[in-house]
């Protein structure tokens, strides 16, 4: 009896890995043939996305994803790490217990709501004060910066809390101020954990779909500056999936393959960092 239960539990435990394998299998099966057909280099670095003419170049979307993600990191990482340091090292314990879940709540707000806010509020501001179409890299980066905040804050707080208390006490005993201790002892010791949080945040930003569709403008061109409208890899899939057939649909799955590799790469790096201790 106990043996059977043990087997069943093991089977359940392998389900995640099995699902991951199934995802890879089906996405690749649908997507890889078209990559081969149009040539990997053409697919990845082609500038023209004209599904009706059978031209599938996703380079503009790769660039779009990278721009938006970079923007989100530039805005979100300093903010997130600052929050984490404050909550882990400076704020009264009682406050931290309320503030941390409050910031985690940012992740609970549906991404479409962020997109909606971007459209209704942020994009018009950008359009009137900075010019351009409003729906732009800048708008998307701002919104994504907020969306990745909980990931960065959460993982960074864990990393900071994992630094042995003795490091801090040792430094304070030598006459360092709290800030000096944080800056010279704790942050360097928590570096790899914080980096893992940043990379996980990056993964979230690259993978975000609905908010980005709503506020990035979705132009299929390579952008010149932060105020241009762009389309990301994720947006490309989501926008055209509804009506795509044949080669076109396969090309969207191929976009998924690229995205999948991208995210898996980021996950591996994050795992590496989060395993490293000090």
């Amino acid at each position: 009896m106990d043996k059977i239960i043990s087997k069943l539990l093991f089977l359940a435990a392998t389900s995640s890995t099995a699902i991951l394998a199934l995802i890879a299998l089906f996405i690749f099966k649908e997507g890889v043939p078209i990559m081969a057909k149009s040539g990997l280099a053409h697919f990845l670095f082609g500038n023209e996305w004209r599904p009706l003419q059978g031209m599938f170049g996703i380079f503009p979307f790769i660039v779009g994803s990278l721009w938006i993600t970079a923007g989100a990191l530039i805005l979100g990482v300093p903010l997130g790490v600052c929050c984490a340091v404050y909550l882990a090292e400076f704020s009264p314990k009682k406050w931290a217990n309320i503030l941390k879940p409050a910031i985690e709540l940012l992740a609970g707000i549906p991404s479409v709501v962020y997109g909606f806010m971007g459209v209704m509020w942020l994009a018009p501001i950008i359009r009137t004060h900075l010019g351009g179409p409003g729906l732009s890299i800048l708008a998307a980066s701002c919104v994504l910066a907020i969306m990745i905040l909980p990931t960065i804050v959460g993982v960074s707080i864990d990393a900071i809390n994992a630094v042995p208390k003795s490091y801090k006490e040792g430094s304070l005993a030598l006459g360092a101020t709290e800030w000096q201790t944080v800056w010279r002892v704790i942050l360097p010791a928590a570096r790899s954990g914080i980096l893992a949080g940043v990379i996980l945040g990056m993964g979230r930003a690259v993978g975000e779909t609905m908010a980005v569709i709503m506020i990035s403008g979705n132009a299929t061109i390579i952008p010149n500056n932060m105020l241009d409208s762009v389309r990301t890899l994720t947006a490309n899939i989501a926008i055209e999936m509804g009506y795509a057939i044949g080669d076109h649909r396969q090309a969207l799955f191929a976009t998924g393959v690229v995205l999948f590799f991208f995210i898996m790469g980021l996950n591996m790096i994050a795992l590496k960092f989060s395993r490293r201790k000090f």
Partner: peptide, 25 residues
């Protein structure tokens, strides 16, 4: 380790990929 690796990777898969997967399967 293998099981945990699978769980961690699955946690990082973006929702659009789950959408594609669910659609095709």
């Amino acid at each position: 380790q293998t099981i945990r690796f699978g769980i961690n990777c699955l946690a990082g898969v973006p929702s659009i990929i789950f959408g594609l997967f669910g659609f095709i399967l």
